[in-house]
Design a protein around this nucleic acid. Structure first.
Lengths: 330, 330
DNA sequence: CTGTTAGCGCATTCAT
DNA sequence: ATGAATGCGCTAACAG
């Protein structure tokens, strides 16, 4: 009963040719209603479903897209994958995931490989150098870029610079003048945007003193940065992202430093856990769900409408919570 | 140069037959070394790579497995997907992901559909009823079950009952006698295991008073349970999982209830964020990474060794952190 | 060892 | 409107 059925089996059972069965299965309008019925009955009776594999080979389309992420453990990428996956499923597409495990050197090869089994690929925050990306893009098309610029592919990104600017402005309005930025990976595009935003803020507000310290992108990095933070005279800390902020919050708590009473802390991304830290984290909320949806829309446009979607840059929104407050009276 | 190359193109370029090219590409040992070289050169020169699609159709194998999860937003499933995906990639396999969005009624269909494009499917904590699962399994084979029992498929699971027992024992040793269990979804297998463990504990320790209250599985549920918790006289709360515990911790903090001084709280799963809550969460650490690896091993065994792996039940380990302490002297 | 033939399962010309 | 042939791109069985 679970034997593999071919289209010819159904054809015989219905007393028609394989071609007719194919037409019926694909809803081809120019078939005799009577035959349609007979074929459908036969198919139902046998429990037949066309082989997606054979179909893919014949049609040249797999109804599947690949999504390449640097790390499936990163909340931001998880959120994007989740919404993208659901949106794609809504349109009858499947998703093949590839995790480069943050090894930039493997990305291009992984993407190419995944692309060959699919109709297109979504590159989420690819870490590979610009020239490598530019070289790979033509071979990957149709492709969509998330959180990374590039030529030859629609882009869906968040405006990290703007997010940090708003965070800085928020702290400034609270009265903070001495800030400390805990940087992410030096080479990354996201970090560069933030650094640029800091430069702008300095120019716009000469009374603002913003120091920068190397840090990292995870809990442990934030936790380890506690010494640096205490050594500085800053009254507020801009963590690279929520993970770093959470690590810092945790370490600060252990050392008995009150947040936000003695020092304010901000994150970035607004991951689901951000609102449940102690105190709840003030952060720049990146609309990852929307990004996942838009990335799919862009891909679908390339796939079906054959038209490239215009670049989309989403503005993070400020989420003010308990980890920021006016600086201590001193 | 990016034109689609067929095997025949390489064959002509090398002056051999397509079959020979195929043999070379697949490392067939019985080919003249000279020809091997010529074919490899030709392939390299043209930049040829065999079409995975055509290969799949001819071989009847896709080198891809499907992973069905109830929710890509759940940290536990994310962790399993992550390690599973990397393990599979290590063996040259790809992963197709399907998210049922917690709609149990769609699971079987989704799994079947995904299975047709792949060589096997890993069902992670499927929510569908037992009879439906039993009916679907034969059609899904080869399949691997994670955190859910079933006939006809290798099982990789965590011993939730044991985890809760250890948590209870930990609290008992601390001196707690009145506990409150915040339950998950009533119908779920995971919840049933915990409830059974509670029954055992009651039987073993008559002096233990363990109440149960319906709650849920997310932050919001835990947060909303704060009223229930305060109404009870319990000195310790066993949250269904870490998310519930975090929501509760947060709400408790807002209401000025000191943890663990006034009340102890335990979680379950040990998600990455558990050690960064305030206070850090005492929880039963479920080895999700190991589970992802084992699930892949089981699948690979079915795929390549054609042998079913024996069921594996992993014991969670107690992670004692700051959210539990002896009950208040009262 | 190598080339030729025949599928894998389906969609789609092309005739009728 | 339907059936018969042809191709999608590759691998395997079969000769030679």
């Amino acid at each position: 009963m679970t034997a593999k059925l071919r289209i010819s089996d159904v054809a015989k059972h219905a007393g028609v040719s394989p071609a007719t069965v194919s037409r019926v299965m694909n809803g081809n309008p120019k078939v005799d209603p009577a035959l349609v019925q007979r074929v459908q009955d036969a198919a139902a009776e046998l429990g037949y479903t066309a082989s997606p594999l054979a179909r893919s080979l014949a049609l040249g389309k797999t109804q599947t897209v690949a999504v390449l992420v640097p790390d499936l453990g990163n909340p931001t990428f998880q959120a994007i994958l989740r919404t993208l996956s659901r949106a794609a499923a809504g349109d009858g597409y499947h998703v093949l995931v590839a995790d480069s495990a943050e090894v930039a050197a493997d990305e291009a090869a992984l993407a190419l490989q995944a692309r060959r089994r699919t109709d297109g690929v979504v590159l989420v925050a690819p870490r590979m150098p610009d020239d490598e990306l530019a070289a790979a893009l033509p071979r990957l098309a149709p492709a969509v870029l998330v959180n990374r610029g590039g030529d030859g592919a629609p882009v869906v990104a968040a405006d990290y610079g703007r997010g940090l600017r708003e965070l800085i402005e928020h702290l400034r309005m609270l009265g903070h003048r001495r800030l400390l930025y805990l940087a992410g990976v030096p080479g990354s595009a996201s970090n560069a945007r933030r650094v640029a935003a800091i430069a702008e803020a300095r120019a716009a507000h000469p009374d603002l003193d913003i120091a920068e310290a190397p840090c990292g992108t995870g809990f442990a990095d934030g936790s380890a940065a506690v010494a640096t933070v205490r050594a500085h005279e800053a009254t507020a800390v801009l963590a690279y992202n929520d993970l770093v902020a959470m690590g810092l919050l945790s370490a600060l708590h252990e050392e008995g430093v009150a947040v936000p009473h003695e020092v304010s802390v901000t994150g970035f991304d607004d991951i689901p856990f951000a609102r449940y830290t102690t105190p709840p984290l003030t952060t720049a909320s990146v609309p990852t769900d929307r990004m996942g949806e838009l990335a799919w829309s862009a891909m679908r446009a390339l796939l079906e409408d054959d038209a490239a979607a215009p670049p989309v840059v989403l503005a993070p929104t400020l989420a003010v919570r308990g980890s920021t407050a006016p600086p201590p009276a001193s």
